[in-house]
Amino acid sequence: MGNTPFWPESASNWAQGVDALYIFLVLVSVVMCVLIFGAVAFLSVKFRRKPGVQPTAIEGSHFLEITWSVLPMFFFFAFFLGGALIFFHERTPPQDASEIYVVAKQWMWKMEHPEGPREINTLHVPLGKDVKLIMTSMDVIHSFYVPAFRIKQDVLPGRYTIMWFRATQPGTYHLFCAEYCGTQHSGMIGSIIVQPEAEYQTWLNGGSSSVPLAQTGEKAFAELGCASCHRSDTQGRGPLLAGIYGRPVALEDGRSVMVDENYLRESILDPGAKVVAGFRPVMPTFQGIISEEQLAALVAYVKSLTPSSGQAAGAAPAKAEKGPPQMKSGRSR
């Protein structure tokens, strides 16, 4: 209660731009309010009823109508552009951002760092580094909201949504769920802890579970028998996965799709939905068999596979360097 903030803390790369745009909007609004309320007050007093003074009939003015219709549009356009630029940037995460998986459920947040540590309702992030969150929900819609970062993204069941930021100020900040999700909605809160790089590394190394996420995924990949079809050579019944992430791939029905987290997710849970050209829809679904955490690990693993690293699981590593970088060009044409 002691200190009541009238302005949120600013701790991310977004804060400055959003604040500047907000202040611009506030200024324009204040000017408009002063003009309109001033005009209402002035006119209603100046032209108050006086004995013997008759009102003058006035039809209107095309000049005024056009002026006050067109003039605001310039401001509207400026607001639109300012907002759109920030938004577009917000929705374009950098390639090399470190990727943290977030799983929301009634009423908690689970975070999984690529290096292995997991946290609940707390997220440690390094200062000054791009961080990308890959988020999904196990039940209803939630929303990941960090006021100090000026950013928010709904977290949906059945798909991944993405947000990214770069923390600019060490400290501890509120994490709120911003989409109503049931009884404990207002209890679904947590902390974002921004630490300088060295401190963050110490925290990472001090964690109990330090098996990297991709490695957990590799283990699951082997245990679930994925490697029997997704072989590291081109002879498997499923497409080669090395290097597939981040590229478009041709589909059986002639369309093509960008291989992102959502496509990988869909291909594991609903393999028949978008089959890569040249393959038959023989893969069984893993819906209900694997957890969101395993799914995140598998996705992280597939993304970690580069053509040169090859697929470790279930296949001879020696073949890696011979594998063509893009399996689809070999099989689909």
Binding site: V18, S29, F37, F80, I86, S143, P147, I151, K152
Partner: peptide, 26 residues
């Protein structure tokens, strides 16, 4: 006039994408 003007002007904040991301659902 007073309340609608304030309500309308703050609608512009919410139409502005970058600002809406911060203030929507608040």
């Amino acid at each position: 006039l007073g309340l609608f003007t304030i309500g309308g002007l703050t609608g512009l904040f919410l139409a502005t994408l970058g600002v809406d991301i911060h203030v929507t659902d608040t």
